[in-house]
Every structure is written in structure tokens, then in C-alpha cells.
Write a protein that binds this DNA or RNA. Structure first.
Length: 298
DNA sequence: CCGACTACCTGCCCGC
DNA sequence: TGCGGGCAGGTAGTCG
């Protein structure tokens, strides 16, 4: 699930528990996730304070006392669960009822547990193990392997029609692939690309080059796309944030609120644009599902 | 460099 | 009820 809004929601949920808190012990239960953990992973965190919990695109970045940054990516199925110091569950379990039904063995796919000095525990669960964790020098964050070629933050001022036009100018890929490419804009995924293109009334099959006029200047399509991307992410973060107010009422783990999507997952259903008589279609692009209304998205 | 494709891994849902 | 196939929110590596 985790695209930028979900990762931001997770960050906001973890921040009050982890930020400024010392890590007493790190329980690393397997040698790798998608990639091997770095050498001495647990030891490089244990006994140190988490100074700040930030985010870059879909990555969580925890500044660890001493100068290293703990980088965490949730892949497709990564989740965090918080157990508060009192023992009460402050974040919902990865699977509802998991602890109640636990017969004594370790819950499956709980790969890393951060035991905090406050007594709270933060558990990383990831069935598919497409997520990963790494430790990098905090001073070289932007030049590290993960971030060096990464594009702009879509919620920053860097997202501008001039930027889109310059990047998309003369590209032969379609808009869907262009927006999914983290080297241009970092943080959009399959769902929010579909949703942003719907809001901008642009066909996902149109070439990315349509955002520029041939000389790298923005077209009206680029002008429409910028606020559509911003709004879809902002709305999703707001919706995710609302689930954080009462952890126990949500039936998903931290940040896994099922947003009310307007096209994603709505194949065969009527287009929600007022006055549009179209129907949402599903096509495959770059091996992944795209949902859109061919009637109002041009 | 670009663009297209594949691999990685488990779980779930559907049809037979 | 079991089994095979397809699908799932991501990225990195390879190949032409």
C-alpha cells in the first residue's frame, strides 16, 4: 500500500513514540529483507537516541544519534505496529486479532522489533519482504545510493509546471510511466498516479511529451497536472491522518486507511465526474493496472 | 542515456 | 476441499 501519503501517515504515527527516544535494543530476526541488513545493524542503533523521524518520498529516515541515518522502505507490504509502554496496543496489529489469537510463537513476518527505552516497542512486519532498511552517513543522505538519482518531492515548491515540462519534454513514454518514475517525481505510486491523472482529466496513455510544447515550455496539461498531484496527495494524507486519532478503531495497521479512490479499483463502475456518462476502464501499462475514464480523461 | 522487461516474495481470491 | 493461475500499493537490475 505504501505510497507517499501512507508513508507520511506512518511517520506521523511513529514520531511521538520514537522521536527523541533512546533505542534500548534492536531485535533483527533475519539477515535480510529485500537486501541484507548492513553490517552491525542492531549494534549501530542500540543505545542511541532517535533524534528525528523524517521522510523522503516513500522512505522513512530516522536520524540516529552519532551521525547515521536509518533508512526504511516499506516495499509493498511493510507495516509498523506500536505497542505502548503500558503494554496496551497503541497501533493496531498487522493483522487484526493477531495477538489475541497468538498461540505463543513469534507472529509470522515480524522481522524487526525496536525496543525503546520508554518501554514501547515498534515492530516491522513485512510478508513479501520487498521492504528494506539501511544505515547511511547522515551528512551524505542526498548522495547516498537510495537518494542520489531521486526526483523532487511532489509536495514541495519544486513541483511546478516548468519542472514537469523540462523533464517530460520529448519523452516517448506514456504519462503513466513518466509519473511512476521516481527519478522525476518521487513518491507517487500506482494508485495516486491513476488518481492524479483522473483529477487532471488526462489520459494515462498520452505521451509524457504532451506536458511540454516542444521547446520545454509547459502546456495547459502540465498546468492542470500540478494541482491535481498536490491535491490527491494532500487529501490522502488528511484521510490517513484522521485514522491516527484513534488507533484502535481502524481495522488496518498504522496508515493503511483505505482511501476513497475515484478511479483506482473501480473497473466497470460509472465515472464520478459530474455529467460524465463514461465508465471506469482497467488497462495494463508497464505490466501494472491502470484505471481511468476514457470519456473524460483525454 | 532511455525504455522495456523481469525478478524478488507471500497472501489472497477466483474458477475449476 | 484442493490446486493452479492471476493479481497486489515497490524498486533494482539487465538488456537492447
Amino acid at each position: 500500500m505504501p505510497e507517499l501519503p501512507e508513508v507520511e501517515t506512518v511517520r506521523r504515527g511513529l514520531e511521538p513514540v520514537m522521536s527523541g527516544v533512546r533505542v534500548a535494543r534492536v531485535e533483527q530476526r533475519r539477515p535480510d529483507l529485500r537486501f541484507p541488513f548492513p553490517d552491525g545493524f542492531a549494534a549501530r542503533i542500540e543505545g542511541r537516541r532517535i533524534e528525528r523521524l523524517g521522510r523522503r518520498a516513500k522512505y522513512l529516515v530516522a536520524d540516529v544519534e552519532g551521525g547515521e541515518a536509518l533508512i526504511m522502505h516499506l516495499g509493498m507490504s511493510g507495516r509498523f505496529t506500536i505497542e505502548a509502554a503500558s503494554g496496551a496496543i497503541a497501533g493496531t496489529p498487522a493483522r487484526p486479532g493477531e495477538f489475541a489469537h497468538d498461540t505463543g510463537g513469534l507472529p509470522q513476518h515480524d522481522h524487526v522489533v525496536f525496543h525503546l527505552e520508554s518501554g514501547a516497542r515498534v515492530t516491522y512486519n513485512d510478508p513479501r519482504r520487498f521492504g528494506f532498511m539501511d544505515l547511511v552517513a547522515g551528512t551524505g543522505l542526498e548522495t547516498c545510493r537510495h537518494f542520489a538519482r531521486m526526483g523532487i518531492e511532489p509536495l514541495s515548491n519544486a513541483l511546478h509546471e516548468d519542472y514537469l515540462a523540462a523533464r517530460a519534454n520529448a519523452r516517448s513514454t506514456d504519462l503513466k510511466a513518466f509519473l511512476l518514475d521516481q527519478r522525476h517525481i518521487a513518491g507517487l505510486g500506482n494508485i495516486y498516479v491513476c488518481e492524479a491523472l483522473y483529477r487532471a482529466r488526462l489520459s494515462p496513455q498520452r505521451l509524457a511529451g504532451c506536458l511540454a510544447d516542444g521547446r520545454g515550455r509547459p502546456t495547459q496539461r502540465a498546468v492542470r497536472l500540478v494541482p491535481a498531484i498536490r491535491a490527491v496527495l494532500t487529501d490522502a494524507i488528511a484521510a490517513g491522518g484522521s485514522t491516527l486519532r484513534d488507533y484502535r478503531s481502524a481495522d488496518g495497521a498504522l496508515g493503511y486507511f483505505q482511501h476513497a479512490f475515484q478511479v483506482y479499483g473501480r473497473e466497470g463502475e460509472p465515472c464520478l465526474t459530474p455529467g460524465c456518462r463514461g465508465m471506469v476502464r482497467r488497462i495494463t501499462q508497464a505490466g501494472r493496472s491502470t484505471f481511468y475514464c476514457s470519456h473524460c480523461q483525454r
